[in-house]
């Protein structure tokens, strides 16, 4: 049933072709901008902290597209709207679990955006700037695994924020809050290796680092085999912890749900 929900989410996106074009165009511009920023920053410098400009171009392409593979803001807003309108009550009558329904639907959109937006953007930009291959076959395969883990953690963080709107009755603020945290701590704009040491040490342990930093760092071979596996296991731990948090939040939220007029 959940697979069917994911498939329908994928198909429903096909109806919005103009949005796909707008996303493709907007995403291409953003990645081109990030490449231009790093090119300007590296002017006259071959390498910083052992990282070359070519590495940073690849980092910009992959970090930008990994994060763009799913529009997490929409999930928070959708949950907020469901809480406001009372539509969320409908899910209590259905033989499905609301968080799993959200995950299936989000996964369908994720698969759609990878196919329709991310891959075309990566192909176009790689054609212009050149995308480095992964450091090894192992790192390439682990990048794919880290990307999936990145989606799961991003979904869980967004769903946690969305479910908090049961108490706060606003999803708008939570969206901005998560955007701010992700902008700084995910490594999507600035890789953590450019952070001041103390700041970096903390940021490396937070779940946000698994959203963009670790997948691309693994691809570039910044982490050895043992480190890669260790941090993958650590990321799975975060995913499990966040899943537990969502389950608890939903259990409490569904108990306190009062729909207007009820």
């Amino acid at each position: 049933m959940y697979l069917s929900i994911a498939a329908r989410a994928f198909q429903s996106r096909l109806a919005y072709r103009s949005q796909v074009w707008a996303s493709f165009f907007g995403q291409t511009i953003q990645i081109l901008a990030r490449i231009a920023i790093w090119t300007a920053a590296y002017a006259g410098t071959a390498s910083v902290e052992g990282v070359s400009l070519d590495d940073m171009v690849t980092y910009s392409i992959l970090a930008g597209t990994v994060l763009a593979a799913w529009y997490y803001e929409a999930l928070i807003q959708d949950i907020g709207t469901s809480v406001k309108t009372g539509d969320v009550a409908v899910f209590l009558l259905k033989p499905i679990r609301y968080p799993l329904y959200l995950f299936s639907s989000a996964f369908g959109e994720f698969a759609f955006r990878i196919t329709a937006v991310v891959l075309p953007v990566v192909i176009v930009i790689s054609f212009i700037y050149g995308l480095q291959p992964p450091a090894s076959l192992f790192h390439g395969l682990m990048f794919a695994s880290f990307w999936l883990l990145s989606f799961i953690i991003l979904f869980e963080l967004a769903a946690t924020c969305g479910l908090l709107s049961f108490w706060l009755l606003t999803s708008f603020s939570l969206t901005y809050f998560l955007q701010g945290v992700i902008a700084l701590f995910s490594g999507s704009l600035v890789p953590l290796w450019f952070f001041p040491p103390a700041f970096e040490a903390v940021a490396r342990l937070l779940p946000f680092a698994w959203i963009a930093y670790y997948p691309v760092a693994v691809y570039l071979g910044q982490l050895g085999v043992e480190e890669t596996l260790l941090f993958f296991a650590f990321g799975l731990g975060w995913a499990g912890l966040l899943a537990l948090g969502i389950a608890m939040l939903w259990a409490r939220a569904s108990m306190r749900l009062i729909v207007q007029g009820g």
């Binding site: 708008f172 939570l174 901005y176 809050f177 955007q179 701010g180 945290v181 902008a183 700084l184």
Partner: peptide, 10 residues
């Protein structure tokens, strides 16, 4: 607060 925080982060 959240909007201000978001801009400060970026």
């Amino acid at each position: 607060v959240s909007q201000g925080f978001s801009y400060v982060s970026v």
